[in-house]
């Protein structure tokens, strides 16, 4: 049931993020929690549950981004597979997670630039992506740390419950 709780939490975070930004007028400090979730899921050990959570949050991620359709989530899925490929070689302590998330954010923007360039060469959103690439990667690193802490907390909560249940047996 842990994955179900993580899925619900992820959906709430993705839909709530835009609402909070709207309420408080946040323009410059957008954490991109959907992308942060993708990074954390890509680095997690269990492929099936993380892939399932990502499948569930891809549509809401698509709604939350008001750019050209599909580019953002396509880049997110590409990043997920890349992180899955590398996850065995990567250590995910806090400083490393920050650095990995920063690089992942850069890769995500680069894939977006590539797909926009290939599929919508006339699009005027390319300068915007290019000018925000570093800033977006920096912010998403904080988002990934937040998500990782949240998932760790959920994980520890379930571990304690499981141990208690085994103790009662």
């Amino acid at each position: 049931m842990e994955w179900a709780l993580k899925t619900i939490l992820s959906l709430v975070l993705i839909l709530g993020e835009g609402v909070v930004y709207g309420l408080f007028g946040v323009e410059n400090f957008t954490l991109q929690l959907g992308l942060a979730l993708t990074i954390v899921l890509g680095l997690s050990r269990d492929f099936s549950s993380s892939a399932f959570i990502l499948i569930m949050i891809l549509w809401p991620m698509e709604w939350a981004i008001r750019g050209e359709r599909g580019h953002y989530v396509f880049a997110a899925v590409t990043l997920f597979f890349l992180l899955r490929f590398l996850s065995a070689k990567l250590k995910t302590s806090i400083p490393q997670l920050f650095f990995i998330s920063f690089c992942a954010g850069m890769v995500h923007s680069s894939v977006m630039i590539l797909t926009t360039f290939l599929l919508n060469p006339d699009s005027t959103s390319l300068p915007s992506i290019l000018s925000n690439i570093v800033w977006a990667a920096f912010l998403v690193s904080f988002g990934a740390l937040f998500i990782q802490k949240l998932f760790d907390f959920l994980g520890s909560f379930y571990t304690v419950r499981r141990e208690n249940a085994l103790g009662n047996l």
Binding site: E17, V19, Y21, A64, R66, G67, Y72, S128, A136, L139
Partner: peptide, 15 residues
């Protein structure tokens, strides 16, 4: 009424 904003720094769109 504004209900939400785009969550990426790439696009400036409000709902």
């Amino acid at each position: 009424d504004v209900i939400s904003r785009d969550v990426s720094p790439f696009f400036n769109v409000v709902s």
